[in-house]
Simulated assay, not measured.
Amino acid sequence: MRVLPVLLVLLPLLSLSGCGEPEKPAASDKEPKKHLVEIITAQRQVVAIERERTGTLRAVQEIQMFNQQEGRITALPFYEGDLIKKGDIVARLDGRLLEAQLARAVALRRKAEKDLQRISGLVERRLTSQTEYTRVETELAVAKADVQILQTQLDYTTLHAPISGVVSARLSEPGNIAERYTHLLTISDQTSLITQVPVSELLLNKLQLGDPVAVSIDALNGQQAPNDQSLQGKITRIYPNLDPVTRTGTVEIALNPTPDGAKPGQLARVKLRTQEAERLLIPFVALRRSGKGEYVFSVDQQEHAQTTAVISGLRIDEMIEILSGLSAGDRVIVRGFTNLRSNSAVNIVPSTAVTSAAVSSTATGTAQ
């Protein structure tokens, strides 16, 4: 057989044919694929922040009337809903026993006054000692104090209205025995209503006393026009302390004058609006968060993505306020985050309609 010579002839031919093929480039020599991203330019925009909060209406002043002297109730003339004026008698207790005790104390005081007048003459003529004069003088002082105490207790049997208002609660009836410090009735001044609402710490420092506030009351069925002056309130108090858990403070809004039909206990919707101010805004979708804090992907001059740490403020509609980390004019990536890393080469594509709508702003934004 002549197989061996044939093989020896074919081997050189195969080696020559392999040398003629071009070498394939190594995988490491391929140009990395650029990320497709959409960007916006960070801009400073003049906007006012608006936020709606709900609260409960209550009277600006509500007085609970308690008796300081026990006794039987002889008069309780007013009922719930009755209007009263400051100084009106709203309750009276039986004070006959105190009147008798007061009459006795007055008689003892008069006797002490005469005794002191008599003893003064004896002291001047040296017919009695100074010690006797001091004793009588003390008896007169005690008698005057007893009269004052009983007179005060007798005054407590008649209760006068400390404010003008409406009786919102009547808790007893004439003939009942009222022990000391019994709640007899409540007087409410409803000429002005107030409500208190929680406000975020980020918005709290942007509010000031006297700022106008739009208020709507659900119970009035929206009969008032949005610009009705009767539904315009103002900030009358900003409480200094914050809740350490929720990071919110309390703002008090006064509604004065009170619109027809508004009553304590009703639900009120309050729209807080800050003064217009210039803020650096970017779309909220551009903000990233990690265990180290907040950041965004920005694009540098070499068209590479860079991780930029930022501190955000209030969210306004679809935008977010940036307090530090960015400057106006910085290019920020808003879409194309999948597998995006710092220093990654990017290819910028035109923004979509959704992104463009998020960037456009109005004079007033709703904070979330």
Rank of each mutant, 00 (worst) to 15 (best):
V334K: 04
A309G: 03
Q196N: 07
G165I: 14
V332R: 06
L122W: 10
R170P: 12
S15T: 05
N339C: 00
T186F: 09
A105Y: 04
V346W: 00
V215Q: 01
T157N: 05
I194C: 02
R288W: 00
V37S: 04
L98R: 08
K34I: 01
N241P: 00
G336Q: 05
K33A: 15
R331I: 08
R92T: 09
R92F: 03
N67A: 09
F284C: 01
V6R: 10
L255M: 11
T134P: 00
L340V: 05
A169K: 07
L185S: 07
A42T: 14
G249C: 14
R58Q: 13
S28D: 10
I163K: 09
P5N: 09
E276Q: 13
L159W: 02
R331Y: 03
Q301V: 10
E173C: 01
P226R: 09
L122K: 02
L184S: 01
L159C: 02
T134M: 11
E99K: 12
E132Y: 06
E113V: 15
S120I: 00
H183T: 02
I177T: 08
S344K: 01
A219L: 08
I89E: 09
G18R: 04
L127E: 12
I187V: 06
H304D: 06
S344I: 00
G365W: 08
T131P: 00
R288G: 09
L102C: 10
D146R: 06
A286Y: 05
S360N: 11
A367Y: 08
S312N: 11
Q64L: 08
Q153R: 08
K34M: 09
E294V: 05
K234P: 04
S200G: 15
T152C: 00
A105W: 04
N176E: 08
G222V: 13
I217S: 05
G71M: 03
A75N: 05
T158K: 10
G95P: 10
S15R: 08
